[in-house]
Design a protein around this nucleic acid. Sequence first.
DNA 1: TTGTACGCGTTATCAT
DNA 2: ATGATAACGCGTACAA
Lengths: 343, 343
Amino acid sequence: MNKKVTFSDIAKYTNVSKMTVSRYFNDPGSLTPETKGKIEKALKELNYKSNKVAKILANGRSEFIGIIIPELFFDYYSQVLNEILTTYNDFNYKFLVFAGNHDQELEKKYIEELLAYQVEGLIILSYTLPSEVLKEYNIPIVTIEREDQYVTSINTNNYLGAQLAAEHLIQDQCDILININSFVRENVPAYDRIRGFEDTCRQNQIPCKIIQKNFKNDYDVTYELLDSVYQHLESEYSNKRKGVFLSNDNYANIFLNILIKNKKQIPEEYEIIGFDNTISKESIIPITTVAQNIQKIARSAVEELKEQIESKDSEKKSEIRHVIIDPQLIIRGTTGKNSYTAE
Amino acid sequence: MNKKVTFSDIAKYTNVSKMTVSRYFNDPGSLTPETKGKIEKALKELNYKSNKVAKILANGRSEFIGIIIPELFFDYYSQVLNEILTTYNDFNYKFLVFAGNHDQELEKKYIEELLAYQVEGLIILSYTLPSEVLKEYNIPIVTIEREDQYVTSINTNNYLGAQLAAEHLIQDQCDILININSFVRENVPAYDRIRGFEDTCRQNQIPCKIIQKNFKNDYDVTYELLDSVYQHLESEYSNKRKGVFLSNDNYANIFLNILIKNKKQIPEEYEIIGFDNTISKESIIPITTVAQNIQKIARSAVEELKEQIESKDSEKKSEIRHVIIDPQLIIRGTTGKNSYTAE
DNA sequence: TTGTACGCGTTATCAT
DNA sequence: ATGATAACGCGTACAA
């Protein structure tokens, strides 16, 4: 390892100034082929390795973007992070990633740390800090699928997703439509899954029931809660065709398992639709689900951030924007009267 | 945002030198309470924000660790990444993360980029670059669950995992033990799942069959391949009690679904054991599985890296180490004659 | 096309 | 306990 080779070393070796070496990288067109060749040779022979930290200090552009996710045990976050990381190939931003673990104080600390490293922007998937607080950091920010009143955001068109689900269940002639959800606040995007579902039922004059439970991030708790929901539905709507829309694939999968164990006919007695298109395909009956366009969400997030970062330079203050990405209904075996087979 | 507040600004404001301001952060014990107070006040009043990029350039310690994962669609990688990120709270390393997407050239490029940002070490989960190549970068490196001959690594005790699985199936009086695997090379840790399985069968004089298929990262392909395996097992071992050990939970789940659809009795006719403890719990029958101790794997990786980083300073060259973490068998509904119920 | 001088914000070193 | 000065490695601005 010894000492690092710098522009000065290359400059001495080639009898040019270090500015010329710098230009070799940043403005090669301005060099004669000769000097270019000399420098190229020297770089190889001295085994030069660039130091971007010095570059940041000199020109102020870190090309860092900070990401704060709640965690990676939930497939949705993993997939979004995966797609964000992949944008490196097109946008060249480097990503410093923190897992907030649902802890507000921790997340504040993480943001301070990210700012210290001169990140040019933040992508926030965690939800503990209100957007009003986020905006105060005065740095380009994009949030994804969370409360977003005061900041630019990318969200799925949850309303449309719920609408597609409800319409599909109605078309399949379900007698009663049920939405199973956790207690989401009205100001988060996911609440539109309830609004869209209710509105669609009302417009089609189909009975509709919203069931909200205090789901934890725990399989057994979720199982118990959904089992009680099942009992309730059985007693309440015994001889009706039930169309059930759950707020994510994990819930949908567990609910499906409960139905199967109780020997229910699917999709004859129950139709099921999940959300997120994560594990739904791997269920005992592949589950119809609303798929978010995660790649588009991720790319849009980086694009919006890039725009903010660049408009910051040119003094045009960019307005807050809320980008909405349409989801897609993926029809599988838990809906459609003739589809009780695997794909 | 205006101009950034620096140590110089604080120094002028308080009539001390910027060195004293620096000491306020790095060696506060050496300051008098008075100056400490003055500086503290100035930091608040001028709203100072630290710049760690300048700090890196000055002292050479970035506190960055680079991570290269193949992708995040596979739960195992997500969980490992999650646990690595969480070590920030104890070790204070910041993580620059790249998704290699199984592309060797891309990964080389990513490593160069990471080196340019002065990362102090690398954690490699991707497998495209041989450890012989990795070692040549001459920087602290730890690999996780991949070929590791020339570098320090953290791996699960795959041999033990397979042994636990085989012993459990034998104890449950299976007549024939089957291991379903992809074509893994003999020099990757996962190959020990085959070795451990075979050895245990041999020692117990139980018939054993290793089936390797060319699994892709695709549900439908995997389904077809496992369906053909099922057909094969049915014709070959029709009235024997079959104990099947699959190399991950996804395969185990799909195989289980195939058995259920064919109305096989589980665990009477087939016993199933998966690996990784990811989706096994959410299957129609919760699947017995070998759980890797992911938290320990992640922490060990960071600890080993830290040791390498620190011993690098003190000129003691640290030896290559291969740390082995024991997994644990989690018994659920797909094994054990009396356990055909959910947990 | 190439060079000079200086600055980026911090720490290291040697003084006092 | 505090300060002066020189790094760290690169880019900007202006000059030649």
